[in-house]
């Protein structure tokens, strides 16, 4: 199941419009049409740090980046839900991916700007089930990842379902998040 999902995602990441594909087409002319059918592909990612690791989400999935607002904790919800934020009148949940991804076992409760380092940000993600924010330690910026070099996450247990794949650039390892899974 997870594997099939990865393949599907990889398939989407695989093709870059500006990449010379002539050689492929000669090898497999029948895929030429299929390649054209592919939609505009995510190739720009927003990279951010969680604990010591660098994660990335497709830039299209990002609604906005905010300074950490006051967070109202909500009782009786999953551990990794930090609470709700009032974003210009809209109530949006804030998630702690460090817990979700088991990067840290018991991070301190975050209730507002004073609980986090100055560089910490909230990345608001667009999601059909309802937009939500994730708390990150630092926003690195936008990276373009060579999609042809994405690799699947090695099977090591843990919350690998939330990881769509791995990308490398300039010696840095980017862990691509599957937004839907990460917020589940």
């Amino acid at each position: 199941m997870a594997r099939a999902r990865f393949d599907q995602l990889l398939e989407r990441f695989f093709y870059r419009p500006e990449e010379p594909v002539g050689a492929w087409l000669e090898l497999a002319p029948e895929i030429a049409e299929a390649v054209e059918d592919l939609e505009e592909l995510p190739e720009e990612f927003l990279a951010f740090e969680l604990s010591t690791e660098t994660y990335a989400v497709p830039i299209g999935a990002v609604r906005e980046i905010l300074k950490v607002p006051v967070v109202t904790s909500v009782p009786r919800v999953a551990e990794h839900v930090l609470g709700v934020m009032n974003i210009r009148g809209e109530m949006l949940p804030l998630y702690d991916l460090k817990q979700r991804l088991h990067l840290e076992t018991a991070p301190p409760r975050v209730t507002g700007p004073s609980d986090v380092p100055r560089e910490a940000r909230v990345v608001l993600l667009k999601d059909p089930e309802g937009d939500a924010g994730i708390l990150v330690d630092l926003v690195r910026g936008v990276v373009r990842l060579p999609l042809s070099k994405l690799e699947p996450a090695p099977a090591m247990g843990g919350e690998r379902r939330a990881v769509a794949g791995l990308g490398r650039k300039d010696g840095e390892l980017y862990i691509l998040l599957d937004v839907e899974q990460a917020l589940a």
Partner: peptide, 24 residues
């Protein structure tokens, strides 16, 4: 206001509102 789409059904919580200081 409803809690964001993903927190719809928290038992005992009807939603959230903002007060003067913008806190939820």
């Amino acid at each position: 206001k409803p809690l964001g789409g993903r927190l719809k059904a928290v038992p005992g919580i009807a939603g959230a509102t903002e007060l003067g200081d913008r806190r939820a």
